[in-house]
Amino acid sequence: MALQTGPITLDTLKRGLKSGIDVTWQLAKVMIPIYFIVTLLKHTPILGAIAQVFAPLMGFFGLPGEAALVLVLGNLVNLYAAIGAIVSLSLSLKEIAILAIMLSFCHSLPVETALAKKIGLSAISVIAVRMALAVLSGLAFNILL
């Protein structure tokens, strides 16, 4: 098996540019609405209430309570939604690093679990593995960073 390869032409650059713009567009499409929603929530008591409820749980990972919003969006929607929430909340670099490693292992569960299931793995074991890796790496980054 091999990918199609060929000489580097203008076409290569065009395709590369297109895929870069595609990623940016996918990101913008999801990120902008999330950014608006979270920013508006910040000006209401709702975000504070969410933060308070999740503060004890998020505390294990060295994260503020509102970081729960980032993890939920990343897992139920995709990484772009999580990024939208990260940049609209005021988080420290360490907190962003912890969220980044947790989300790297575990994100977009509906779509990606369906793919793994198609290949023959059980949905529960895939989700359990990914969540376990996210939790362990989050705890480790909080201690080590």
Partner: peptide, 16 residues
């Protein structure tokens, strides 16, 4: 950051 990285990946892909 993302656009240059995707561009480089496409070049590497075509280089085999």
């Amino acid at each position: 950051i993302v656009i240059p990285i995707m561009l480089v990946m496409e070049i590497l892909k075509d280089m085999g």
